Computed example of a mutant assay.
Amino acid sequence: MDIARDLADHDAPDRTVVRADIQTGGRGRYGRQWVSEAGNLYMTLLLREDRPLADCAQLSFAAALALYDAIGLPDVALKWPNDVLIGGKKTAGILLEAGGPATAPWILIGMGVNVAHHPPDAPYPATHLAQEAYAHEIDTLCRSVLEGIDRWRGIWHKQGAPSIHAAWLDKAHGRGQDIRVRLSSKEIVGRFETLDADGALVVLDKAGTRHRISAGDVFFA
């Protein structure tokens, strides 16, 4: 994403795409870093918006929906806040970064998709597309994802966040079930109910208290 950020700062146009065959400084949420070997899809999409920066977090849901559609396998599901699962195993992840003016920001959507392999030592179940009988070439997957982001971004522009949230919830893994959410200083256990208007996770604990969670790691029972 560093190359894409430099391009954004130097006025690269909307929908600029940066792809890598390997990553030696891959980055995820909370600054987690890793090395990514060849064979998977690693790309960052630069978008420019004319709306407040706070609203642009919804593009994470648009990207997740695009990945869901592009993969197209029967057991695909979405995990809050930014993962795509197959059979409950992580297959893809999304990272958003942003900058520029608060009223006309640029947004980087970084995406990593396990196509040919997945990390053997991941702290959660993981898989890759070749293992799940995905039959398309990596370039085809890339084009499908970008076309899907265009489509879901357009829906967000025309219909707003509720339409994106409704579509995402329809494909969400574990909705209505008990989950654990690990925060920086505690864990919350309860039922995954919905998303709020900003896309935060809403969890109902056994005491009847609803928790609005804007950042955390989700684990399923």
Rank of each mutant, 00 (worst) to 15 (best):
L108F: 06
L108I: 09
C142E: 15
T91N: 00
A135M: 00
V84D: 08
K171D: 00
I138E: 04
K186N: 13
L96N: 05
I155M: 07
V189A: 13
P125L: 09
V181P: 07
I179F: 01
W156M: 07
E187N: 10
E137W: 04
A197P: 03
G87T: 12
A133G: 09
I179C: 04
T140P: 00
A166D: 13
I86W: 09
L129R: 07
A166H: 12
Y124D: 05
H173Q: 11
H136D: 05
S185H: 13
S163H: 13
L129D: 03
W106P: 03
P123A: 11
D198V: 09
W156C: 01
H118I: 01
I94K: 03
L85E: 03
E147R: 13
P101C: 03
S185N: 13
S163M: 15
G190P: 07
P101W: 02
G112D: 07
V84G: 10
G190E: 10
Q159T: 01
R153Q: 11
G174V: 05
T194N: 15
V84P: 08
E132L: 00
D83N: 12
V145K: 00
T194K: 10
L129W: 04
I188Y: 04
L195P: 05
L195N: 09
D170T: 12
D150Q: 08
I149N: 01
A130F: 06
T140C: 04
K171P: 02
L169A: 10
F192P: 00
A200I: 01
T127Q: 13
A122Y: 14
D121V: 05
Q131K: 14
V115I: 13
L95I: 14
V203H: 09
P162Q: 07
V189T: 14
G87A: 14
G99N: 11
A167R: 08
A98S: 15
E193L: 15
A92R: 07
G148H: 04
M111I: 15
A122I: 12
I94W: 02
E137S: 15
I164E: 04
M111S: 11
E187P: 00
E97Q: 15
L108R: 03
L108K: 04
V115R: 04
E147Q: 14
G112C: 09
E193Q: 14
G112R: 06
G154S: 13
S184F: 06
K90I: 13
A197F: 03
V203F: 12
L95V: 11
T127E: 08
R153F: 03
V203Y: 12
D178F: 12
Q159N: 07
P119V: 11
L183D: 01
A130S: 08
V203A: 06
I94R: 05
H157L: 12
R191S: 12
D198P: 02
